[in-house]
């Protein structure tokens, strides 16, 4: 029996562990290893160079620019997405019949959820085909042609959107870093918000529905209005969910690769003039379009840096937002 049990356990775990070790863990380890060498990606002769790649990385103008863009995305995208999702969840839940705010929904709330959530299941290719055309920088684009029809934009001076590298605010320089928000990056953030709000709306809305009704009844009995109930009762009880959402959106903000590759000009995306370059897009285009002899190793150092930054961010966010006293119901 015990022999059969051991054989069973080994038999069931063998293939999953093998696949995972070969295709996931081994490449991770290789990235870390190559990042301290001068490996070109092709030549089998390469040498250990220590942490030189990392030092150069934080002197690399484009990488710092890309990092700055990620920071801009990180400060704007999660906050706006969470606020909009909370706002719509509030609208879905406080509107509607009855006086027990927060428990019912407005009429047709599942239809709204169905529509809002849909962009979440679309692939980057579909999003790219649609939004490239929406933001197109001539009279064939949706927004430009709409504005021209309304007379707000002149036909020979269309809005440039994805082709515009100018920052929407004057660049702020702190030491090596320059923070700026090029128009093209703002467009990408808008698309990301468009895709993400529905997901977090559903998340928050489900959380609101799971709050026991007697809490709302008690609040109503005490004479609280819907708005008061939302801010004093519902929102504090959603703390945990907002915290999780923030971590996920933070991770997504440090990524952004698919949007940059799918939407922006230049080989491998990132244009115009690196105005929409983020860390991951710079890493990928650097590895495949060598600009230096050890570009593969250099890109690996970027991969490790992205991983470390992502883990640090998640850890910090969890520490900041996790409430000490957890409420169970």
């Amino acid at each position: 029996m015990s022999f059969g049990r051991a054989r069973f356990i080994t038999g069931f775990l063998f293939a999953p562990i093998l696949l995972y070790a070969v295709y996931v863990l081994y490449p991770y380890a290789q990235t870390a290893y190559y990042s301290v060498t001068d490996f070109s990606g092709f030549s089998p002769d390469f040498a250990y160079v220590g942490f030189g790649n990392y030092v150069e990385l934080f002197e690399d103008e484009v990488f710092l620019k890309a990092l700055g863009h990620n920071v801009v995305v990180l400060t704007v995208f999660p906050v706006v997405t969470i606020l909009l999702a909370l706002f719509f969840a509030f609208m879905l839940n406080v509107g509607g019949r009855g006086d027990k705010a927060g428990v019912r929904g407005v009429r047709g709330s599942s239809v709204y959820k169905f529509i809002f959530f849909f962009p979440q299941v679309l692939s980057i290719a579909i999003v790219a085909v649609i939004w490239r055309r929406v933001f197109q920088s001539n009279d064939g684009g949706l927004i430009n042609s709409l504005l021209m029809a309304m007379g707000l934009v002149e036909k020979d001076k269309p809005l440039m959107f994805l082709a515009e590298g100018e920052s929407v605010f004057p660049p702020i320089t702190i030491g090596n870093f320059t923070f700026e928000a090029p128009v093209v990056l703002v467009c990408l953030i808008l698309i990301a918000i468009w895709g993400g709000v529905g997901f977090y709306l559903v998340l928050f809305s489900a959380a609101m529905q799971s709050i026991p009704k007697d809490i709302f009844e008690a609040a109503t009995l005490d004479g609280a209005t819907r708005v008061q109930t939302f801010f004093r009762v519902t929102l504090p009880l959603l703390r945990e969910h907002v915290s999780v959402a923030w971590v996920y959106l933070g991770i997504a903000a440090l990524d952004f690769y698919a949007l940059v590759v799918g939407m922006t000009p230049g080989p491998g995306g990132g244009g115009p003039n690196d105005a929409s370059q983020v860390m991951s897009s710079y890493m990928m285009s650097n590895a495949f379009r060598p600009s230096r002899f050890d570009s593969f190793a250099f890109a690996c150092a970027m991969g490790v840096s992205i991983a470390i930054l992502t883990l640090l961010l998640a850890a910090v966010q969890l520490r900041v937002t996790r409430s000490r006293d957890k409420l169970e119901f």
Partner: peptide
């Protein structure tokens, strides 16, 4: 509360409808 409810109803449907349009119009247009 019932007045409040009605105002909120119009209000929330307004915003929800607006976002619904922002999601669907680019899709349908494409």
């Amino acid at each position: 509360p019932s007045d409040e409810g009605r105002v909120f109803n119009v209000f929330s449907h307004g915003f929800l409808f607006l976002w619904g349009a922002l999601v669907t119009i680019p899709l349908l247009w494409a």
